[in-house]
Write a protein that binds this DNA or RNA. Structure first.
Lengths: 278, 278
DNA sequence: AATGGTGTTCGACGATGCCGAAAGGTTCGC
DNA sequence: GCGAACCTTTCGGCATCGTCGAACACCATT
């Protein structure tokens, strides 16, 4: 690990999270370095347009270069490229917005976003990040990670985003087990009040999870009350819980199609299973 | 300039331009460093998710972290934030796509993109970069740069993108002078065959150019033949050259509105001029 | 099996980046 | 208007840290 590069990367991370504009002193505090050290690093990053300094206030922010890099990443992403075709179909079939995401540390990053096919104004969420534990995409990915990485994910900060976010290891383990059982992750207003998600994992070569694809939309559109209980005299006790079956199937179909395009299931234990399913 | 950080940044730049996946050897060649040096830098960058290594081929590509940073940059960009409101209006009024861009080295970076208001499928160009000399946005920005930076821009590689791209310093100087004269930059199929652009500069505090806003669309929609020549017996000789007046005015209005929101024209020589114009 | 090409590890040399202290500059409060 | 307190920036010596040659392990071809 090269020290100065590591420090530069941490500076970028600090600038990327938190307030958009920071002074040298504030950055130095957050990364725990001396002021002149940070200054030198910033100067170098600035030279490459990765950070920019406000000429008035002297404060620093991320520079235009990072968007350019981000765009290159998206353009070169095989996962994204293979998704384009199938997500379009999925959005049309489901009538809801579709997200494709991949894991980066403890968060998922939205790589592709197909708007809900109606004429309402929607904001593009490509590049947005969500804590993995608070969205269906994240559950779908983490559930199929090797156990070591799964443990690391469970050890990360499990902050609640809404009142419904599951934040205990036990609850998340149960959720992940269920995802593995039914090959589908469901999230009900754990990231945003009112919004739910349905997602399925995407596998790349050697059947390692490469990401996930899923629907994001109003909870009452995506979910239906859980299967009729014996005691129907308490109808208000039933709460929306289960994905509408046709949506769940559509998501799984899309995930399998993308996985196949990515070349999943060659020379791996899971290979034959996936082939049989497709 | 911190050496190792500088080298790391150059590695990122190499990964961002050119083929999406490169091996250590190839990267080492392109940045002119020894293989182990590059390896160490890559390992560090990988640790921060700024690059990712394909587990199969061992080749490296940009990592998910860069999109995350790019997104943060866009979220914190004051230019972009102030543009949202006015670009929407401009797109509706003009019936064409609107871009907001800023300069990064010799290229402009698209910070905001409002789709042409019809139902055709369009791809989002946010994050895309275009050589400054090949687009109206770039002309609008460079024309209002301090002379030193302007000279630097003119000294960059002026590669042609289409058969119509102006690539000589003299031609570009004339173009920039005209931009300054009429406060409007026009480009006719210099970046993409069939597409034209009309752009105006956006000024930030102290009236330094912060970026540009403009229309991008089919040349025959944005431009009209230059003012009627005396000899009308050669109608085919006339070629579309001049922006449709109402579009030009709409672009300038939008640029001025954004500049005002950014706080342009306080305590600077150009301040009174801009105030008088608004 | 041999070969050329990978990506990776090791270690010693010496250049290189780190940080304490002090210097410009600006913005407050008085 | 003045002084003080903050900011960002510069300087220089010490020791650390990064660099690169050579050798390693590995894979796909030949």
């Amino acid at each position: 690990m090269i020290q100065s590069v590591d420090r530069a990367a941490r500076i970028l991370a600090v600038l990327g999270s938190g307030p958009p504009r920071l002074g040298v002193t504030e950055i130095a505090d957050r990364v725990g370095l001396a002021k002149p050290t940070v200054h030198g690093l910033l100067r170098t990053l600035e030279h490459h347009d990765l950070v920019a300094q406000d000429p008035d206030t002297g404060k620093y922010s991320l520079g235009p270069g990072v968007v350019s890099l981000g765009n290159s990443f998206l353009g070169g992403s095989e996962l994204r490229a293979r998704s384009l075709r199938w997500t379009e179909v999925l959005a049309r079939k489901a009538g809801e917005a579709v997200w494709v995401a991949t894991l980066s540390g403890p968060r998922v990053i939205v790589l592709h976003h197909v708007f809900r096919p109606d004429d309402t104004v929607q904001i593009l969420e490509v590049g947005a990040t969500v804590p993995w534990h608070a969205c269906a995409l994240g559950h779908a990915i983490v559930a199929h990670l090797p156990t070591a990485e799964q443990a690391r994910a469970l050890a990360s900060d499990l902050v609640p985003l809404t009142g419904r976010t599951r934040t205990t290891k036990a609850a998340l383990r149960r959720a992940l087990a269920q995802v593995r059982r039914q090959g589908l992750a469901v999230e009900d207003q754990e990231a945003t009040v009112g919004d739910a998600g349905i997602a399925a994992p995407i596998f790349g070569r050697d059947s390692v999870v490469a990401g996930a694809v899923g629907l994001v939309g109003p909870a009452d559109q995506l979910l239906v009350p859980a299967e009729a209980e014996p005691d129907l005299d308490r109808p208000d006790a039933a709460h929306p819980d289960v994905p509408r079956p046709e949506l769940g199937r559509a998501v799984q179909d899309a995930a399998r199609a993308i996985s196949r395009d990515l070349g999943a299931g060659r020379g791996s234990p899971l290979g034959p299973v996936l082939s049989a399913l497709s």
